[in-house]
Measured scan of single mutants.
Amino acid sequence: HFTSQQLQELEATFQRNRYPDMSTREEIAVWTNLTEARVRVWFKNRRAKWR
């Protein structure tokens, strides 16, 4: 589960860029205190939901 702060950060990034690269995902991981893998999976799932 994600905190509302984490989701806000993830959503804001998603609005700007639906396909963040590795370095962007790592930055998000640092800001949100999540692993890069969790961030990558979140984006994958979010893109699926967005379609």
Results as ranks from 00 to 15, higher is better:
Val30Ser: 12
Thr13Ala: 15
Trp31Cys: 08
Arg40Glu: 07
Val41Tyr: 11
Thr3Glu: 04
Thr32Gly: 03
Gln15Arg: 10
Val30Lys: 15
Phe43His: 00
Arg51Glu: 12
Arg16Cys: 13
Thr3Val: 03
Gln5Leu: 11
Leu34Trp: 05
Asp21Gly: 07
Arg51Lys: 11
Pro20Glu: 03
Arg18Trp: 06
Lys44Ser: 09
Tyr19Trp: 11
Ala12Pro: 02
Tyr19Glu: 04
Thr24Glu: 14
Asp21Arg: 05
Arg51Ile: 11
Arg25Ala: 03
Arg25Met: 09
Glu9Asn: 11
Ala48His: 09
Thr35Asp: 09
Asn33Ala: 07
Asp21Ile: 04
Tyr19Phe: 11
Phe43Val: 01
Thr32Leu: 15
Trp50Ile: 07
Ala12Trp: 10
Leu10Cys: 02
Phe14Pro: 01
Gln15Ile: 09
Ala48Pro: 00
Glu26Gln: 14
Lys49Met: 10
Trp31Val: 15
Arg25Tyr: 07
Arg38Ala: 15
Thr13Arg: 15
Glu27Ala: 13
Val39Leu: 03
Glu36Cys: 05
Arg16Ala: 09
Trp42Leu: 02
Thr3Pro: 02
Lys49Gly: 07
Glu26Ser: 10
Pro20Lys: 04
Thr35His: 04
Leu34Ser: 13
Lys44Arg: 11
Trp31Thr: 15
Phe43Asp: 00
Arg38Thr: 13
Thr35Glu: 06
Glu11His: 03
His1Trp: 13
Leu34Gln: 07
Ser4Leu: 13
Gln6Tyr: 03
Gln6Asp: 00
Glu11Ser: 01
Arg25Gly: 02
Gln8His: 11
Tyr19His: 07
Asp21Asn: 12
Arg25Lys: 01
Arg46Pro: 01
Arg40Phe: 07
Leu34Gly: 04
Ala48Asn: 08
Arg46Asn: 02
Gln5Pro: 06
Lys49Trp: 09
Val30Thr: 12
Ile28Gly: 00
Trp50Asp: 12
Glu27Ile: 12
Ala29Asn: 01
Tyr19Val: 05
Thr13Ser: 15
Asn17Pro: 01
Val41Leu: 14
Asp21Cys: 08
Thr35Val: 04
Asp21Trp: 04
Glu36Gln: 05
His1Asn: 11
Glu27Tyr: 10
Arg38Trp: 12
Met22Ser: 08
Val41Cys: 13
Asn45Ser: 08
Leu7Ser: 05
Arg18Ser: 05
Trp50Glu: 14
Glu36Arg: 02
Phe14Ala: 01
Leu7Trp: 10
Arg46Ser: 02
Trp50Asn: 07
Gln8Gly: 08
Asn45Arg: 13
Arg40Val: 04
Ala29Tyr: 03
Thr13Trp: 15
Glu9Asp: 13
Tyr19Pro: 01
Arg51His: 10
Trp42Phe: 04
Gln6Pro: 02
Ser23Glu: 12
Arg18Gly: 04
Arg25Pro: 01
His1Tyr: 12
Arg51Thr: 09
Leu10Met: 05
Arg46Gly: 01
Thr35Cys: 06
Ser23Met: 12
Phe43Leu: 02
Gln8Pro: 01
Glu27Met: 13
Asn33Thr: 05
Gln6Met: 07
His1Asp: 10
Thr3Cys: 05
Leu7Pro: 00
Leu34Met: 09
